[in-house]
């Protein structure tokens, strides 16, 4: 099943195509917050490069967050509209699990993976996953939001729902831009290993591959039922004011 993966829930914006044979094409761009501008041309580009047309899609996968709101909505609106136009379902993938899955398919040895995404306003989104080198992934905790210090305390306490993070002997692979930004806050430990640049943002390929797996298993939604994961209530203290429009 040909699946388009859309990832724009972070500073990065990208998409990828995957089918039964694996990844076909992927593009990822880091260029400020220009998701609404870039996504449609990127989708056209990966299709052209992979030699497929959108009409051949069986499903659309999308990073449904948690992440940066505006990018998240650009990705969701794009994925929902393409799925609606083609009459195909949507597979929602979490940004945190896409990061962990990226670590797994990168061939990292079996490990406990901690995905940390910069949530701005001094906070991070995080989630714990166990991964194997074969791309198997298990979610150990629901996505959470909080101060980096809260996460640091959780790491120190070793309290992870379902298992003790420090119970085993394995290392903890820490992935995501939040991990890199708050590395010092989370504290140094012989067991904490900070992943490299390639796992700073959720790979669009991971969204496509995970989404395709989900679509094959029938774990999909109708486009209008896809919900972004915000994890934070809206900030109603910021009311709209009408900016004067430019006049030459």
């Amino acid at each position: 099943m040909l699946t388009l993966g859309v990832e724009s829930a972070t500073d990065q914006c990208g998409c990828a195509l995957a089918d039964g044979g694996g990844l076909l094409a992927e593009v990822r761009v880091l260029l400020g917050r220009r998701h609404a501008e870039m996504l449609a041309p990127q989708v056209g580009f990966v299709c052209e490069q992979a030699g497929v047309t959108l009409s051949g899609l069986g499903a659309v996968a999308v990073d449904a967050g948690p992440g940066l709101y505006t990018g998240l909505r650009a990705g969701l609106a794009t994925a929902q509209a393409i799925a609606m136009a083609l009459g195909v379902p949507v597979a929602a993938v979490s940004s945190l699990e896409a990061l962990a899955f990226g670590a797994a398919v990168c061939g990292a040895s079996p490990s406990l993976t901690l995905s940390v995404i910069d949530a701005r306003r001094g906070e991070v989104f995080w989630g714990w996953y166990s991964t194997s080198g074969e791309g198997d992934l298990a979610e150990l905790t629901k996505p959470a939001v909080g101060a980096p210090e809260d996460l640091a305390a959780e790491i120190r306490r070793g309290e992870v729902v379902g298992r003790s993070a420090f119970g085993g002997a394995g290392r903890i692979l820490v992935v995501g831009d939040g991990a890199r930004r708050y590395a010092e806050v989370m504290g140094a430990s012989a067991r904490l290993e900070l992943a490299g640049e390639e796992l700073r943002f959720p790979p669009p390929s991971a969204v496509a591959l995970l989404g395709r797996r989900r679509a094959v298993a029938g774990e999909t939604l109708a486009p209008e039922h896809v919900e972004p994961v915000y994890l934070r209530p809206h900030d109603a203290s910021r009311r709209a004011w009408h900016a004067p429009t430019r006049t030459p």
Binding site: H35, A40, A77, I82
Partner: peptide
């Protein structure tokens, strides 16, 4: 535009996506 950025993002993204899909 003109309008609220986050609101415009939704319509513009959906509009462009529908156009490429169709």
């Amino acid at each position: 535009g003109p309008g609220l950025t986050g609101a415009l993002v939704v319509g513009v993204s959906a509009g462009k996506a529908l156009s490429i899909a169709w």
